[in-house]
């Protein structure tokens, strides 16, 4: 699971108000190279939750992103875009779990696929 996917997922348990971002428990992280697409990154920059991405990438062992939302002028820097690219699209949570920030409920991630199915009493 890429961190771009993580940036969209929210805990979906009934009654949970602040289900985003899900905390990451990383057991295995893999890196898969993909083509660098600066225009896509510039477009995504305004759409994603920066803090969630920076925290998630740190948990996954990649500590190169600033903690706070950077000024959009950084988008002119190739070096910044490369790091953003790597964190957003190349880091994959292969094994581990996503944890609801409000209830602590674990959603397991196996073979890169998060299982977000709810139990009957959570719907």
């Amino acid at each position: 699971m890429r961190l771009l996917t993580h940036n969209m997922l929210s805990s979906n348990i009934k009654g949970v108000i602040n289900g985003f971002p899900l905390l990451i428990q990383a057991e295995r992280v893999v890196e898969k190279q993909v083509d660098f697409n600066p225009d896509f990154l510039k477009n995504m920059f305004s759409k994603i939750d920066w803090k969630a991405l920076a925290d998630a990438s740190k948990t996954m062992g990649y500590d190169e992103l600033p903690d706070e939302v950077p000024d959009p002028s950084v988008l002119d820097s190739q070096e910044f875009l490369q790091k953003f690219h790597h964190a957003l699209l190349e880091l994959h949570l292969e094994e581990g779990a996503l944890v609801c920030p409000e209830t602590g409920r674990r959603f397991p991630v196996n073979k890169g696929i998060p299982n977000m199915l709810l139990h009957e009493d959570e719907v």
Binding site: R2, L4, T5, L9, S10, K32, M116
Partner: peptide
């Protein structure tokens, strides 16, 4: 090719932001 996969029920999906 790379395709992310998520196991979930579509009707119970909670989605953050406007990324899709």
């Amino acid at each position: 090719v790379e395709m992310g996969l998520i196991q979930c029920e579509i009707k119970n999906l909670r989605w953050q932001g406007q990324i899709v």
